[in-house]
Design a protein around this nucleic acid. Structure first.
Lengths: 352, 352
DNA sequence: CTGAAAGCGCTTACAG
DNA sequence: CTGAAAGCGCTTACAG
């Protein structure tokens, strides 16, 4: 509760001077500076950032909105963005939206109310209007992974952003499996909340890949989940109740793929011998489980860096025309996929 | 960039009145209120929270400092705390400290500078002085999981907090393994950064458990890591270079246990047949991998709730005497532990 | 090099 | 019920 005035009077100067030494304007006499510094130390003075932000009309923090902190995909991105932000002198705050538009709005609202100098918004529950609204109010914004949502709604956005070709990622998953000789597939697709169409594009890409080989994926071979590992497990258990036994599985994210593997293993299936599995994301856990998960990687570090660059760029130069970057997928082949096996075990316990 | 004055003049009233309708003081005439509301809508006015916070001398947000967002243990706690906070009308911000005192200080500093109405500080890199400093400046603080650090440094803290008996947790791990007939052990212990002694207490407890059965754990059977899955893997690979083959392993957190299992599986060891493994934390992933990890659980949901309660309590009633809560461990037996097996496979590939 | 003044956008007593 | 005034803690031109 010690203010700049307290320091000023103790040092026998005025608040403006204290302010100058703090901000290192270099236009303060050595001796005065010394006195002020001492007063600051003695009083244990700390500037009130809210007040500073109020005057300077900008926050000292950057924030990232992400839909689900429990899916490692996001923390992995956040970690890198945070490094970049800190290197540039910004603090980095994480906000978990739970894929909820109301929660998201609420965060955006308050963050824009002077708390923050810029925000990175990962797609997932946030309404584009809300995002554009705070941008209109002068808060630098960059959106990540919004391409599919925008296309789905037939909208354009003037906000800078970095996207990823999820449809192509799905197609790559199909190509990988096809190249191993698989012809029969299951797919587990997240349908987050609402009409979030993100994962639908991954499915569309997967089907496009199959189509190029003259194959199709019937609707009953597709199960919809909610991005969690638990949901992947349940989806696969549902599959097991049918009599069909495709030799390969595509899950629209790694967490669901991991859950599906759990269920498959529990049912006595061998991976990859009886079932090849491919995910999408390439979270760290995927290379640590056994069998290690084959997946289509999102370049998370690059995503984070590009997003931070765009944000910092905007902050420094608000006029810059909106930049949009598109990142490309890549398959990382590990242990969970193998050539289609005619001897595949088809049922719990026994060999076919 | 539309301010309360703009609204006021458009509605033909004064800023104070606008303020009153916004804060629903109920002392504004219906008609005036109507006009003000309309003006707000038309202008798209949003209050500047920084300014409000400045006047009211408190932030509208709560923050949690945690050492590593990439270790699911923390997100799982954060998620629950966030729910509680939101239920109470607060926004919830996450700050990742990387176990770094400087980063932590920086966050504390800025958060305390008006951005935040209270903070929950998970132990890990934060310096107690820094925490107490912001508490002294009037920011409500609750510390989580600091008991071991305080004891280690022979200090007391007047801050309210919620702790967990990590030493007893280690002891429980030993008891579980002993009850299965194991007599020879390895341990992988995190030594975070600095002199962070947290995990040393887990080791101490583990040894205490063994001692009660007349057993000891020689130092060369203990490997120190850094809390990550990667580090658990490396630690176990180091163990494999010795000729010794204990039948059981204790890791001071689940992530390291998972990494150790990865290395063990890769070396051709069967879990639990050749090696029983127990972790500590009970993160979600532990029950989804195969074999599912036996672990000593930290009651994360309760931890989160208690911490939030303490924080909210302080905010409402700053005079309350510091409350300290101690949570107890519990072992969750899953697939990674089994009775000691005399036929254990001791080496890559072959049977013993 | 230093200070006086104005102002950032809001809220809080206090009059009326 | 509404407004005038003061103030939250800082920074920014502008004098001097």
């Amino acid at each position: 509760v010690v203010t700049i005035k307290d320091v000023a009077s103790k040092a026998g100067v005025t608040a403006a001077t204290v302010s100058n030494v703090i901000r290192n304007k270099g236009l303060v006499a050595k001796a005065t500076e010394q006195r002020v510094l001492e007063a600051i130390k003695e009083l244990g003075y700390r500037p009130n950032l809210a007040a500073r932000g109020l005057v300077q009309r900008r926050g000292v923090n950057l924030a990232m909105l992400l839909p689900n902190i429990a899916n490692p995909f996001y923390p992995e991105i956040a970690l890198e963005a945070e490094q970049q932000a800190r290197a540039a002198g910004y603090q980095f705050l994480l906000c978990n939206t739970h894929y909820d538009p109301v929660v998201s709005q609420d965060y955006l609202e308050r963050l824009a109310g002077g708390l923050v100098g810029g925000v990175i918004a990962m797609e997932g529950g946030i309404k584009l209007e809300d995002l554009e609204e705070i941008a209109r109010r002068g808060v630098p914004v960059v959106r990540c992974l919004w391409a599919e949502l925008l296309e789905h709604e037939g909208r354009q956005s003037v906000l800078p952003g970095v996207d990823f070709d999820f449809e192509r990622a799905g197609e790559l998953a199909a190509e990988h499996l096809l190249s191993l000789g698989h012809r029969d597939f299951w797919a587990i697709i997240a349908r987050a909340t609402l009409d979030n169409p993100g994962h639908l594009y991954r499915l569309r890409g997967f089907r496009r890949g199959l189509a190029k080989a003259g194959l199709t994926l019937p609707d009953h071979r597709v199960h919809f989940g909610d991005t969690t590992i638990e949901s992947g497990r349940q989806a696969f258990e549902a599959f097991l109740e049918s009599a069909e036994r495709p030799t390969a599985l595509f899950a629209s994210n790694d967490m669901m793929a991991l859950g599906a593997m759990e269920a498959a293993l529990d049912a006595g299936l061998r991976i990859p011998d009886d079932l090849s599995t491919v995910g999408l994301d390439d979270i760290a856990m995927s290379r640590h489980v056994r069998p290690a998960l084959t997946t289509v990687a999102v370049p998370k570090l690059e995503l984070a860096r590009r997003a931070t660059d765009l944000l910092l760029g905007q902050i420094e130069n608000p006029q810059r025309s909106p930049n949009v970057i598109l990142l490309q997928p890549e398959v990382v082949a590990r242990q969970s996929t193998a050539p289609a096996n005619p001897q595949a075990r088809r049922t719990r316990g026994g060999l076919s």
